[in-house]
Write a protein that binds this DNA or RNA. Structure first.
Length: 275
DNA sequence: CGAGGTACCTGACAGC
DNA sequence: TGCTGTCAGGTACCTC
């Protein structure tokens, strides 16, 4: 479900609700959600009485900084939701973890497909494990610039779509925003990365940033599951030019938008503008 | 290194 | 109504 703009929106909405809260109790009804520590009782015990200090995003990860140097790191994968709920609210069918705050409300982790994960580590543990070094730069940061991106593309024969989806190279792009950025740049998703001209690289770089910023501005893209921490949908789906528009006409040339498998993912593109 | 496949899970939807 | 197959915003892991 969520890519960078959706995760960013969740973090922002959550920040306002849970900063400064103290954790009283944690309920875990689906143990596979807890990626670390391996003992769920440790997970629960470590969280007890910790204060929520700060929230941030790294790629598609949500990073919650807690007191005593702990970090609660969450990946929503396809269908994860983090929701602020009243203590008495009905537990939904796919609520797998509930973090109860002393003030009387909860943070609940819903996840239909159970792919999402929560990791509770100390700063030291994270560092020992190599931290987030496996993740590429943030696409909206100044580090993600022409020099970096052209170096990346020029030394790879990968299909450009596969490269954009590779979190070790760029952290945060997913299937929707990749298709949108490639379409807006007029680049065939199948092109080998090292076949892009310098002009195309510039254009793609600019459009990656633009499409992500627009996604954030419209609070993300909601097709089915994605909502922010208050249960509110995003609206960027209304601005999509190719994703989910198979058979509809291209805004520029009028021909039908196609959908094919590229790099193992369903890929939407205009066969005319992106040839 | 790159490509392609499988697996993890559940639900929605199309077609019969 | 119900069965079957396909697909889904992500990623890890395997083989060729």
């Amino acid at each position: 479900m969520p890519e960078l703009p959706e995760v960013e929106t969740v973090v922002k909405s959550l920040q306002r609700e849970i900063c400064g809260q103290i954790i009283e109790k944690v309920l875990v009804t689906e143990e596979m959600i807890i990626g670390y520590p391996s003992d769920v009782e440790d997970f629960k015990a470590r969280l007890k009485n910790k204060e929520i200090l700060e929230l941030r995003r790294r790629g598609k990860y949500i990073v919650i900084r807690l007191s005593a140097n702990f970090l609660l790191i969450i990946h929503l994968r396809m269908t994860g939701q983090l929701l602020v709920k009243d203590r008495g609210a009905d537990k939904e069918k796919h609520t797998h973890v509930i973090i109860e705050f002393k003030e009387g409300f909860d943070l609940r982790f819903n996840n239909v497909r159970k792919f999402g994960r929560m990791y509770l580590v100390t700063e030291e543990e994270l560092e020992q494990a190599g931290g987030f070094t496996e993740l590429g730069p943030e696409p909206l940061s100044a580090n993600f610039d022409f020099a970096y991106f052209s170096g990346l593309t020029q030394k790879s024969r990968q299909k450009i779509k596969a490269l954009l989806l590779d979190q070790r190279k760029i952290a945060g792009l997913g299937n929707i925003y990749t298709d949108e950025a490639l379409y807006r740049s007029g680049i065939d998703p199948q092109r080998p990365a090292n076949s892009l001209t310098s002009k195309e690289i510039k254009k793609l770089l600019k459009n990656i940033k633009k499409v992500l910023q627009a996604g954030i501005k419209y609070n993300g893209t909601t097709f089915s599951d994605y909502v922010n921490a208050l249960g509110e949908s995003g609206s960027f789906q209304e601005k999509l030019l190719v994703y989910g528009r198979k058979g509809e006409s291209c805004n520029y040339c009028g021909c039908n938008i196609s959908k094919d498998k590229v790099a193992g993912r369903s890929t939407h593109f205009c066969p005319e503008c992106q040839s």
